[in-house]
Design a protein around this nucleic acid. Structure first.
Lengths: 230, 230
DNA sequence: CGAACAATTGATCCTCATCAAACCTTGTGG
DNA sequence: CCACAAGGTTTGATGAGGATCAATTGTTCG
């Protein structure tokens, strides 16, 4: 593996780590390469490793007994995932992680992180900060799902995506995902997503294509997501 | 205040604390008494204190700009709440805490907890364990809301409540809350909750009254909550 | 070019939210 | 101790918002 240990400082949980710690961590890491559509781990598997995505893109999802899925979040480069199992011995993953494109990730033993945290308070604190953002985001999304109409939820999902992984192009922000993905992220169906996007396209807010959406009028999107009068 | 410091060990985050630590914490705590319907704190307030409920009952909720609310969880004796703000300086509460009955709680400065965690790894670890259970529960409830029908969601909310704060009586488990509460917990309306409960009563699964539900047939409830064939 | 996959669109139906009205239950004050 | 107010609950009627199903139309890639 030819990874500069110091690059790990881009990972939010390691932002306050010492150089030595980063080197130690790197020495305990192995690299895993996953093809598009394949899985890092499944919900219910023993949480032996946690991961840091080095390249590609992945999604975290939960499925119910009948196989219906919801997207919890999308994972980008230098983001940590599967770390919830690290704080408890013999834990299992509460979600499934699937590669959206061919991806590589660093796999580190959960036990090792737990051990490190015993002597490095900054690590615990930074991991807790990450956890609180998850809790807050899930709480917000839960409220959204319970109280907001589909159109607004889709608008919000789109804006979240734009902030997280949109690429600026002339005349807009480009995003790449399927209607199904967006449906899973906003708690609806691909049909409804398709209809809503078509309507927005008619209004000139977005431009759509296969696995592609360009937000032409971000301001208009925000007002759909936030305005009270709708 | 005449609280035995060692009683704090009932708080899950303090389960591994030393006796001395518990005494220290007690010395930094003040007691607050809140009337039924009044608030410990509001969403958006600076998170200066976190709380431990000593007596009574409270609920954590989030509201959207139009005032619609969702219940995040119910808080019982010896449970900690408002602690998310403790890991980050100048944080604000992400939810509102309201007393369901006249209650008393220990208030402790968030700063102080953060300080303690710098030198006591067990504290961080136990707080993280608590956080992971929140994350997992929210993830599950989010999936439920996105994929399950109301009847099943209400059944699950009821079972969660029963596990958390039900009292066993002859011939069932007794719970005490309004239809509105249950509606906020399962993401529906009090009308739907009322209808579903009435139907269940007709089937002999539960017995209902004003601010009261007795689960007569827990097994039947579980099968509504879990069965695939519905 | 054809197969596989993604997206669109129409038609239909069902689940729930909403509104309105009446009914119970509980506690309070005259 | 009764009457009444306040809040909780039930039930019916109605309709909107989306889910679902089915058929068709792009789009991409081997």
């Amino acid at each position: 593996m030819n990874l500069d240990p110091l690059a790990l400082r881009q990972v939010s949980v390691f932002q306050n780590a010492t150089d030595d710690d980063l080197k130690l961590i790197t020495q305990h890491a192995i690299e895993r390469s996953i093809e598009e559509g394949e899985f890092f781990f499944f919900q219910g598997d023993p949480a032996i490793y946690f991961y840091i995505l080095l390249s590609g893109r992945a999604k975290l999802m939960q499925s119910n007994p009948t196989g219906q899925q919801v997207n919890l979040r999308t994972i980008n480069e230098w983001q940590m995932f599967g770390a919830l199992g690290a704080v408890r011995e013999n834990a299992t993953y509460p979600a499934t992680a699937q590669a959206l494109e061919q991806s590589t990730a660093l796999a580190i033993k959960s036990d090792y992180l737990r051990e490190l945290m015993q002597t490095r308070p900054y690590l615990s604190l930074d991991l807790m900060r990450l956890m609180t953002t998850y809790i807050q985001e899930m709480q917000e999304r839960y409220r959204e799902l319970a109280t907001e109409k589909v159109e607004r939820r889709i608008a919000r999902a789109l804006l979240r995506l734009a902030a997280q992984m949109g690429t600026k192009i002339e005349g807009g922000i480009e995003l790449s995902f399927t209607r199904q993905d967006l449906a899973e992220m906003s708690g609806t169906t691909l049909y409804t997503v398709s209809r809503v996007l078509s309507e927005w396209e008619r209004q000139g807010l977005v431009e759509t294509g296969r696995e592609r959406v360009v937000i032409r009028n971000p301001h208009g999107m925000v007002s759909i997501a936030e305005e009270l009068d709708r």
